[in-house]
Simulated assay, not measured.
Amino acid sequence: MHSTRNKLLHLLAQSEFISGTELGAQLGISRSAIGKHIDAFKQLGLDVFSVRGKGYKLSEPLSLLSHDTISDYVQAQLSHEKYRQIPQPLYLDVLNVVDSTNTYIKQNIAQLSQGASCIAEAQSAGRGRHGKQWISPFASSIYLSMYWRFSGGYQTLSGLSLVVGLAVNRTLNHFGITDGQLKWPNDIYINMQKIAGILIEVEGSVGDEVHCVIGLGLNVNLPDDITGIEQPFTDLQSHSQPTMINRNHLTAQLILDIQHALIIFEKSGLSSFISEWESLNVFADKDITLIIGQQSVQGVCMGIDPQGALRVMVDGEIKTYHGGEISVRAR
Rank of each mutant, 00 (worst) to 15 (best):
L23I: 12
D287Q: 13
Q307H: 12
G215P: 01
Y189G: 02
R170L: 00
S32H: 08
S151A: 14
G165P: 03
H2P: 00
Q259W: 05
H80L: 14
Q77L: 07
E317L: 12
K82T: 12
Q107L: 09
T234R: 12
M192K: 15
T171M: 03
S296R: 11
H211Q: 15
V220C: 11
S268Y: 10
G180H: 10
L44D: 13
H67G: 08
K106A: 15
G299Q: 02
G303V: 06
N169D: 12
I195L: 09
L62C: 13
V314E: 05
S158T: 12
L280H: 08
V97C: 08
A120W: 04
V74S: 04
Q259Y: 11
L290P: 01
G308D: 00
F138H: 07
F175E: 02
N281T: 09
Y56A: 01
G115N: 07
K57V: 01
K132S: 13
I29N: 07
M244G: 04
G215N: 01
L270Y: 04
E317T: 14
E16H: 10
K42G: 02
V94T: 07
L65F: 11
Q133S: 11
N246M: 12
E266C: 10
A330L: 15
Q307L: 11
F175W: 11
F150E: 07
Q307F: 06
L8K: 02
G293T: 05
P242V: 14
R331V: 08
Q295R: 06
A25P: 00
M1D: 01
G180R: 03
Q43W: 01
S141V: 04
V210M: 10
I142M: 01
T103G: 01
I29M: 06
A252N: 06
V297N: 02
Q193P: 00
Y154K: 13
I142A: 02
S100I: 10
I258K: 07
L64D: 09
T103E: 05
A125H: 09
T178F: 15
S63L: 08
V98M: 05
Y73H: 14
G165Y: 00
Y73L: 05
G269C: 02
T234I: 12
W134P: 00
T101W: 04
Q107D: 15
D285H: 14
L9M: 13
I226K: 03
K57R: 14
L218Y: 04
I245A: 06
P89L: 06
Q111I: 10
K36G: 02
T320N: 13
K7H: 14
L23D: 00
Q107T: 03
L256I: 07
D93F: 04
N221H: 04
G197K: 03
I190N: 01
D257Q: 14
Y154H: 13
H211A: 15
S63Y: 10
L160R: 10
V51Q: 11
I229R: 05
D68E: 14
S158H: 13
F233A: 06
I38W: 06
S32I: 07
I109V: 14
Q253T: 13
G24S: 02
I291Y: 08
L270R: 04
Q298H: 04
R84P: 00
F41D: 00
D187V: 03
S275V: 08
R247F: 04
F265W: 03
Q294C: 04
